[in-house]
Amino acid sequence: MEPVLSVQDLSKQFGTYTALDRVSLDIPRGSIFGLLGPNGAGKTTLIRIINQITYPDSGSIWLDGQPLGPEHIAQIGYLPEERGLYKSMKVGEQALYLAQLKGLSRADAREQLRYWFDKLDIGHWWNKKVQELSKGMAQKIQFVVTVLHRPKLLIFDEPFSGFDPINAALIKDQILELNAQGASIIFSTHRMESVEELCQHIGLIHRSRLILKGRLSAIKKEYRQGKYKVQWEPANREAGLGPLQEALEVSAATFDAEEGIWDFTLKLGDADKAAALQFLSTHGNLAAFSEWIPTAEEIFIRTVQKQEANG
């Protein structure tokens, strides 16, 4: 299927500083795409270019197979990391204004706002001034304004910062619901646990370059190291892990004296797996055996570190 957004060979310089260096990536239609990277890597620049706030020096962007242009502004919803509202303006009036700037008619904007305000149970804020709201409350308004015009591509930059856990969960559910209704989502964050939870695809930018991209599950598979987490009660308590260590590579072993269970990591080649399982089950009681799969966070850190080491 054609990707909803396709970025090709995008470069951007600020003076002598290179913010983006030949970045290419596809956002698959209907997916949630995690855009990751350390601070100052170039994520915000890429997002701003997609939003046509800044313009690239070279490269191209395609939305739905068409070169990105001003007419696409209404099809993108953007929640920036640095976000705020006019403090002295009333909530309803302000939401109407921002919605109209996105191209909705006043009547449509009002209807959509009513829907969202009811849904998030914030209808009674309509006539309040923004300065009377708490930070979390203002964030909710910003979220509503971002998604109000039903864009096909939503871009969230650190959407959960400033929310308490309950509201963060509420917003997460809204994001998943919008995704289920067909919106494609770019999700930029440092919070790896939410990447794990939400994203099917990721792209990792480091020092202006895209150094990793693809399906998260595929990347994880690639980053396996043949390590297995094992909980095992050896038949010969006295010998402990001794016989095992002679045959296999054991690390990070701990012993629960009360239960008599060893907890350790085994490193195995694919071919050795059956033999190891055989050994473990004949020479003791195998309580748990699972392959260790790297988390998004571990992948992130390892990839960045590897890149740093390579210069």
Binding site: R48, N51, I53, I73, E82, G84, Y86, K87, L98
Partner: peptide, 18 residues
């Protein structure tokens, strides 16, 4: 300056040209 300090500016210019 107010638009800058209240951080609404990026929201606005993702909809309209600066």
């Amino acid at each position: 300056i107010e638009e800058k300090t209240s951080r609404i500016i990026e929201v606005i210019i993702s909809s309209v040209k600066p």
